[in-house]
Design a protein around this nucleic acid. Sequence first.
DNA 1: TAAATAGTGTCTCTGAGACATTATATT
DNA 2: AATATAATGTCTCAGAGACACTATTTA
Lengths: 245, 245
Amino acid sequence: VTRRGERAFLTGYDAHAYPPFALTVDLAIFTIRDGQLSMLLVRRGGHPYRGFWALPGGHVIHGKEDAEAAARRELAEESGLDWTGHFEQLATYSSPDRDPRIKAGLHVASVAWVALAADLPDPVAGTDADQARFWPVEDLGELDLAFDHNQIAVDALERVRAKLEYTTVATQFVTEPFTLADLRRVYAAVWGQAPDLANFRRKVLSVEGFVVPTDETAPPIAGRPPQLYRRGEAERIDPPFIRPG
Amino acid sequence: VTRRGERAFLTGYDAHAYPPFALTVDLAIFTIRDGQLSMLLVRRGGHPYRGFWALPGGHVIHGKEDAEAAARRELAEESGLDWTGHFEQLATYSSPDRDPRIKAGLHVASVAWVALAADLPDPVAGTDADQARFWPVEDLGELDLAFDHNQIAVDALERVRAKLEYTTVATQFVTEPFTLADLRRVYAAVWGQAPDLANFRRKVLSVEGFVVPTDETAPPIAGRPPQLYRRGEAERIDPPFIRPG
DNA sequence: TAAATAGTGTCTCTGAGACATTATATT
DNA sequence: AATATAATGTCTCAGAGACACTATTTA
């Protein structure tokens, strides 16, 4: 099979013959602040939904990048750092009326992403946001977010909770080196309930490559000094962790 | 917070001020034919990639539907039936050069979907396809599909394989009523290896609501007549099935 | 009766839940 | 010494792998 004739087809093709779509990205950026799972929200500085809290995001640059590149670019702008944490596509939201610009003839679809990071620096307000802050996910229910961002936030939260069961992404929420107590607090924050201490240790240490022990201990608060660990190479927990409750 | 001023903003908004995106859907439709997991492909009748095998799909109708509705519409057109099987979003592919129409100024993003069904009728060629057939996924590696459809096919296949571990979607591959041997053949086809017969039965029957026994048996081929079952209400297998190999 | 398919029983091992116990630090 | 935190040990039970065995039909 060849692609004969395609060149001529493209020469005659009119990209403006059909009503336009726009492609955006939205980011659900999670971190753990004061023991609480939190999500970054920005207050929108421009229309539509001016003044509303929303997920950070922006437009995919036409012809220059794909949605992932756009999301990573926004992530760097919003969090102001070279990104090391976990990053994955969540889903695409494309209801015609999810963005009021449909009234002006623009159908806006958005690819949502989930990002996890440890101890992010305080967020930077972007070009289209006059304010940015981390919200504990517990308080999220009371907020009326822009667009369909409440739905995206709910889906993102469930994705994170599920991922902790069968992947090692929990280690992305702590800075290296970390103690097993640190890692356990991640599970407690994300699942809303701490797994049993002894069984947690046994599980984590039995999954090869989940964590790698260092030969150091942390200065004790009160009590025995805890062993320090780094992230291992493993990505999957098999058999999976079981979520309590 | 109110949305004051948004109306005026929208009145002045020019949807054509920015270069256009198009939004399409692509479908990875799986079924089991002759004991082999198979995927529906169509031969493209128009540019671009005319004459190439591709996933069925099409454009989201601007302002009228979201990607899910478009995918369901294409599914109905392509398979020519009221759809009952499993259906879920896979991921969105948006690389600028995934569709050559970028050369004419159109950036085409596509939301891919996975659909599972039992014993589909022979496929119908659509408006943009002069041919359609199911391909065993084993033979798929030899095909050079249109666009980035090889990648989408690989991702879809892995999604299906993974989903059989922790959900009951395998029952969507068989017609009711079915025997446990039928269901086991689904796992054998998707995973490429049959789970142990006795352990398979024990697992399926121990998950409440996976299958519901009827009070009938199927006419025996040779041997004891098998018990017939229907799909249960359960959606998750917990703890999950373990994929052999 | 032999062969084929359906279905049951059981031994063993892994791993998770529950919880008691030991270790090592600070105050 | 009392207390707080870290780490280990152990009993029990659920469930998965392996595989032998029984049941019911056709040829």
